[in-house]
Simulated assay, not measured.
Amino acid sequence: MPKSNSIPISKQLSSIKALGKGSELEKAIATTILVYNSRAGNDGKMSKTEVKDLLHTQFQNFTQGQEAKPKYKELMKDLDEDSTGQMAFEDFMILLLSMTLMSDLFNEIRQTKNTK
């Protein structure tokens, strides 16, 4: 669950002056950090249960339709088996990357030509 005293991410982003000059990729990574931090405890970690909830609420377009894939099942099983376990930001990023690479949306995006 998000911290009740957390500052909205949009407000956090607008308050970081360096991002005004940042690239799209830098902004995307900064947003990921801010979303994670808004849910992490004071130790900078999230419970695996919270990570699973975050994936279902904030990453659903990448996880949609993945339930039958063995790798997805393996990742979810790891989150379910040890609900008292904690996840650091670095492990969270690896999880996001793994979920992204196996997603159907990733393949659709890669096949789309940039129209700029």
Rank of each mutant, 00 (worst) to 15 (best):
P2E: 11
K3H: 10
I7M: 13
I7L: 14
I7F: 11
I7G: 05
I9R: 09
S10C: 09
Q12N: 12
Q12I: 05
Q12S: 12
S14V: 07
S15Y: 00
S15Q: 14
I16W: 07
A18H: 10
L19G: 02
L19E: 03
G20L: 15
G20S: 15
G20P: 01
K21C: 04
K21S: 15
S23Q: 13
E24M: 11
L25Q: 14
E26V: 10
K27G: 07
K27H: 09
I29L: 13
A30I: 05
T31D: 01
T31F: 02
T32R: 03
I33M: 12
I33Q: 09
I33R: 07
L34I: 06
V35E: 00
V35R: 00
G41M: 04
K45C: 09
K45D: 02
K48Y: 06
E50M: 08
E50Y: 04
V51C: 10
L54F: 07
L54M: 10
T57Y: 06
T57E: 07
Q58S: 11
F59K: 00
F59S: 00
N61M: 04
F62C: 06
T63Q: 04
Q66W: 02
E67C: 05
E67V: 10
K69D: 03
P70N: 10
K71Y: 01
Y72P: 00
K73H: 08
E74Q: 14
L75Q: 04
L75A: 06
L75E: 11
M76C: 08
K77Q: 10
D78K: 15
D80R: 05
D80Q: 12
D82N: 15
D82W: 05
S83A: 10
T84M: 11
Q86W: 03
Q86K: 15
F89H: 02
F89E: 02
E90S: 14
E90R: 08
F92N: 04
F92V: 03
M93T: 11
I94K: 15
L95M: 13
L96A: 07
L97K: 15
M99W: 09
T100L: 09
L101M: 14
L101N: 14
L101S: 13
L101A: 10
M102A: 02
F106R: 00
F106M: 15
Q111V: 03
Q111D: 12
K113S: 14
K113A: 14
N114C: 13
N114Q: 14
T115G: 08
T115D: 13
K116F: 14
K116P: 06
